[in-house]
């Protein structure tokens, strides 16, 4: 049975590109750097085949932290970046590494913590109150500490709460979301997580959601093509084709159709004003 399915899988892999599309692009490989959240959640694995079938492009995804994803873009190692760190994205464009930032979607963050909820976070309504209480009770809190989008969001939230987290209760792990959730479970600690990783791992976790829905917890994703002026040999046409598809009605529908345990992870949020981009999209042929 297992053999049969893997044989089928193999044959689709081989056949797909051939039947894909009549007008195969000149440079069919698009290199994209993105954050672990989009890859680990399974979003890209679900929606990218639609794009690839339609256009004949093949998207090669490198899933890393936001910081490194942008760095890969700055170095011209990839053609396009899909990340969630608004301020850095704007800096990236302003510095001339990318052409224009397009809104794609957002997901949201949630706070999870031990069932006993020693800091009584469940009783709070806002991030600010929640964080103040965690700090006041010195309840263990695990921070990503890896400069990822989630980490940046967390730092911003502490700032807004007016708390400088420090001390033995505050642990900067420097690891991915999955690992940090695992650590928090072991240490009976609070942590901030994106909903996607939480949904994918909640079955095995002893933690519970203690705060969700606050406006400050929304996490917008942007997609940026690496500047062709800066790096002429990038696959700019491919990058733009991918962006166009992601913000098209079809792409946006695919994003909202992606569900885990019956819940959408990402909410499409393409800005209609951006759908007709300022730069002429390169013709694919």
């Amino acid at each position: 049975m297992r053999k049969l399915t893997s044989a089928l899988w193999l044959s689709t892999c081989l056949v797909l590109p051939v039947f894909a599309d009549e007008q195969k692009p000149a440079n069919p490989i698009i290199k994209m750097a993105t954050t672990t959240s989009t890859q680990d959640s399974g979003l890209l694995t679900q929606i990218l085949p639609n794009f690839q079938k339609k256009t004949g492009y093949e998207v090669q995804v490198t899933a890393v932290g936001t910081g490194k994803a942008l760095k890969l873009g700055e170095n011209g190692d990839v053609d396009v970046v899909l990340v969630h760190a608004r301020a850095d994205e704007d800096k990236f464009v302003a510095a001339g590494f990318g052409d224009q930032r397009y809104s794609v979607m957002y997901n949201d963050f949630i706070f999870v913590g031990p069932e006993e909820d020693p800091a009584k976070v469940k009783a709070t309504k806002t991030t600010t109150d929640a964080l103040k209480q965690i700090a006041a009770t010195q309840s263990p809190f695990v921070s990503r500490g890896d400069d990822s989008g989630t980490h940046k969001m967390e730092k911003k939230l502490w700032d807004q709460a007016g708390v400088k987290p420090a001390g033995e209760w505050y642990r900067e792990a420097g690891q991915g979301m999955g690992e940090v959730l695992q650590m928090s479970g072991e240490l009976k600690a609070y942590t901030l997580t994106d909903r996607g990783t939480w949904l994918a791992t909640m079955d095995k976790s002893p933690l519970k959601i203690v705060l969700e829905g606050d406006k400050t917890l929304l996490n917008p994703y942007g997609i940026i093509a690496v500047s062709q002026k800066r790096y002429p040999d990038t696959n700019h046409a491919g990058a733009q084709a991918l962006i166009d598809w992601m913000i098209s009605a079809e792409g946006q529908q695919a994003i909202s159709d992606f569900k885990i345990n019956g819940q959408s992870l990402f909410t499409p949020s393409a800005d209609p004003a951006e759908v007709k981009p300022a730069t002429e999209p390169a013709k694919t042929n």
């Binding site: 932290g65 910081g67 942008l70 500490g145 400069d147 642990r171 900067e172 792990a173 420097g174 690992e179």
Partner: peptide, 21 residues
């Protein structure tokens, strides 16, 4: 767990710094 000030050592820090760019 690569925790800053406590358990972050040279190899785990390298892994982290690289992932951060």
């Amino acid at each position: 767990g690569n925790i800053l000030h406590y358990t972050r050592n040279i190899p785990t820090a390298i892994a982290l710094e690289t992932s951060k760019g």
